[in-house]
Write a protein that binds this DNA or RNA. Structure first.
Lengths: 129, 129
DNA sequence: ACAAAATGTTCGGCTAACCGTACAATAATT
DNA sequence: AATTATTGTACGGTTAGCCGAACATTTTGT
């Protein structure tokens, strides 16, 4: 009995997925060093995270090989990013925080909101953005 | 160079402070076993946390001794609890989540909101609770 | 194509937070 | 007061996430 569906994913791993997706939309190839810089962690931490994500079938990874998200990984990444954007809008437009504050809080809250809370927030913000 | 002011406190330790304070308001003496039950962690984890909190001068702790919050600890605890209540109200009254959902989300978000975000949320909720 | 630079991996090590077991101390019962 | 139950602690172990240094591989520059 391990994971029921590979659903369990930590805040940290969500950050990695998010970073990979964003780099992927900006450049052609995703490199570990870009992730390292974006997240402010060491290269060796990236390698470790990639291995874990590969085990969970969220990234396609092989030693020294090309890196990409799987379909499931992309879906998960998009999900986190959508949360982030919704939260950012809420903090910025509803609570009137400045951009930095809105970003920082979105980055932290995005990992802890339940699905229901997130949907409720979408409803709420939807009318005011 | 360690802590500048003992300010750094993890989510987990905040949970302990919160629990201690709440038990303290309901019973006369705070016992480790109550904390253990309230947080759903083992007794040995409580001992460990208490030692850490004592090092940070947030609880008065001695081996087998009476347990209490220091002034700083009480302030920190009240701060977390106020965050919790504000968030709970927001989730319940503004986002219309049921009580369980509101509690659970408040429990997780309370540890990650910046001071500014929290103040902005108070402003926002203040008018609608 | 070869040397130099950049990038990726492995390894050992660290910390925080948890656990269970065994033991110590305190509290309760009779 | 002595036994039993409860509670607290010490200890060793686990896991996730991070690090830097040393080494491996790939890429770049000429």
């Amino acid at each position: 009995m391990q994971e029921i569906k590979g659903k369990n994913i930590s805040s940290s791993l969500e950050d990695y997925l998010e970073a990979i997706y964003e780099i992927y939309t900006q450049k052609n190839g995703v490199k570990a060093i870009d992730i390292s810089k974006k997240l402010g962690v060491g290269r060796s931490s990236v390698t470790e995270a990639l291995k874990t994500l590969a085990q969970k079938h969220l990234v396609n990874y092989s030693r020294y090989g090309v890196l990409s998200l799987t379909a499931a990984g992309e879906e998960a990444a998009k999900n986190v990013i959508e949360r982030h954007k919704t939260l950012y809008n809420f903090f910025k437009n509803t609570l009137n925080l400045d951009e930095n504050e809105a970003q920082e809080n979105a980055c932290r809250v995005e990992h802890v909101l339940s699905e229901k809370a997130f949907q409720a927030l979408i409803n709420f913000v939807g009318n005011s953005s």
